[in-house]
């Protein structure tokens, strides 16, 4: 039996008719047409499905859509500041070669965004710890760490500039 779930996705209020057993991941991908969030395992092991719910990164595969009732869900599709301005992390991922096949990328971007928001100047160990639930099998992580460091520095610089203005 389907029930109506009302939630906010990337700032837009949505109401979706879903069955009680459907995961948030399948609902985003199959019902809401937001296929940027990926399914690499469906059991919490890979982090490809990481989305941010009410400010906290979670595995969308381990949450039911009905549990998102009344909540605020953010996915990779909402990361850009505007149609033609990428988030500094997205830009850094491109420049540093942090995305090869790209399958892990949306999940890692969401996780990294949260990491930098909480900790604008993360150490290498903090970056590694923050991304330990996200598997990337292509890059060996080195370029991902480079990109996160570089985006964090850029965001700090912009912020410092804003404060002096």
């Amino acid at each position: 039996m389907k029930q109506i779930v009302e939630l906010t996705i990337n700032g837009d209020p949505q109401s979706l008719a879903v069955e009680g057993h459907r995961s948030l991941l399948d609902t985003l991908r199959e019902e809401a047409g937001l296929t940027g969030t990926k399914k690499g395992c469906d059991v919490g092991d890979c982090g490809a499905c990481t989305v941010i719910v009410d400010g906290q990164p979670v595995n969308a595969c381990l949450m039911l859509a009905v549990e998102a009732q009344g909540r605020n869900v953010e996915t990779v599709e909402g990361m850009q500041q505007s149609i033609d301005i990428l988030h500094p992390l997205q830009d850094a991922f491109m420049r540093h070669g942090a995305s090869q096949c790209g399958f892990c990328t949306p999940g890692i971007l969401m996780m990294a965004r949260k990491l930098i928001e909480e900790n604008p100047d993360p150490s290498d160990d903090e970056i590694r710890f923050g991304l330990s639930g996200n598997i990337c099998r292509c890059t060996g992580y080195t370029k991902i760490f480079d990109a996160v460091r570089s985006a964090a520095a850029e965001i700090r610089a912009v912020r410092a500039q804003e404060e002096t203005v």
Binding site: G47, Q56, V58, N59, L62, M63, N134
Partner: peptide, 9 residues
């Protein structure tokens, strides 16, 4: 225990 994502749930 697991990852930050898992621990958030």
């Amino acid at each position: 225990l697991a990852s930050i994502q898992v621990r958030n749930r």
